[in-house]
Simulated assay, not measured.
Amino acid sequence: MSIKEYSLAKIDDFVGRELGLSDWVVVDQARIDAFAQCTGDQQWIHVDVERARRESPFGGTIAHGYLTLSLLAALAIEIGLIPEDASAGLNYGLDKVRFMTPVKAGARVRNRVTLVSVEKKGGGRVIVKTMNELQIEGEDKPALIAESLAMLVA
């Protein structure tokens, strides 16, 4: 998706504006299990469905916080964070990450992205800071909020 008139040349005009809202993504047990396998985080609250039904305060398994955090980049790209006149967009870091509400297995999430600031670094490089709110369908509080940094390259 592209954002109307959003480009490296006009990026300053978008500071303080919402860039968009991604489509919903399902965080199912298969995704949670794959993340656990990749990271080695096999804590029962994420991967033991039966035990989580019995013992978890959430009534079932929940996604890893870092799994939900890892969804931000792809969902921001889906919205159009990397303008068409940029040759690349690279992760640059994170600020102020807060995990607010656990994401239950099977829940749908989406990312609301707002451009917070733009810092020109020279050589066609620009660092953008975005506020990301990973919303959970049917929940009042988001799964997480995070300021993320990306370097856009002309």
Rank of each mutant, 00 (worst) to 15 (best):
M1T: 11
S2V: 04
S2C: 01
I3A: 00
K4D: 11
K4Y: 03
K4P: 04
E5Q: 05
Y6T: 00
Y6C: 00
Y6H: 00
S7H: 01
S7Y: 00
L8P: 02
L8Y: 00
A9Y: 03
I11T: 05
I11Y: 00
V15K: 02
G16A: 01
E18F: 04
G20Q: 07
G20S: 05
L21A: 09
S22W: 01
V26Q: 13
V27F: 07
D28N: 13
Q29N: 10
A30D: 09
I32F: 06
D33M: 11
D33T: 10
A34I: 02
F35Y: 12
T39A: 04
T39H: 04
G40S: 00
G40R: 01
D41G: 10
Q42G: 15
Q42P: 05
W44V: 06
W44S: 00
I45P: 10
H46E: 06
H46W: 11
E50N: 14
E50Y: 11
R51Y: 05
R51P: 03
E55K: 11
E55D: 15
P57E: 09
G59T: 05
G60W: 04
G60A: 00
I62G: 09
I62K: 10
A63L: 03
A63T: 02
A63H: 01
A63Y: 06
H64D: 06
Y66F: 15
L67C: 03
T68K: 08
L72E: 14
L72N: 15
A73D: 14
A74F: 03
A74C: 08
A74R: 14
L75H: 10
A76V: 04
I77P: 06
I77N: 11
E78G: 09
E78S: 09
I79G: 10
G80K: 01
L81I: 08
L81H: 02
L81T: 04
I82C: 08
I82K: 08
E84P: 02
D85C: 02
A86Y: 01
S87V: 14
L90S: 08
L90F: 14
N91R: 12
Y92D: 08
G93N: 04
L94C: 12
D95V: 01
D95W: 03
V97I: 09
R98M: 01
R98V: 04
F99N: 08
V103P: 06
V103S: 03
A105V: 01
A105P: 04
A105Y: 02
A105G: 13
G106W: 00
R108H: 13
V109R: 02
R110M: 09
R110Y: 08
T114H: 11
T114G: 11
V116G: 01
S117F: 07
S117C: 07
S117Y: 05
V118A: 02
K120T: 15
K121F: 10
G124E: 14
G124M: 07
R125Q: 15
R125S: 13
K129A: 15
K129L: 13
T130P: 05
M131T: 12
M131V: 12
M131K: 15
E133Q: 14
L134N: 02
I136M: 04
I136L: 06
I136H: 01
E137R: 05
E137H: 05
E137N: 03
G138H: 06
D140Y: 04
P142Q: 03
P142R: 12
E147C: 05
S148Y: 11
S148D: 13
L149S: 06
A150Y: 14
A150W: 09
M151R: 13
M151V: 15
M151S: 12
L152P: 05
L152W: 03
L152M: 09
V153D: 12
V153T: 12
V153C: 13
A154C: 07
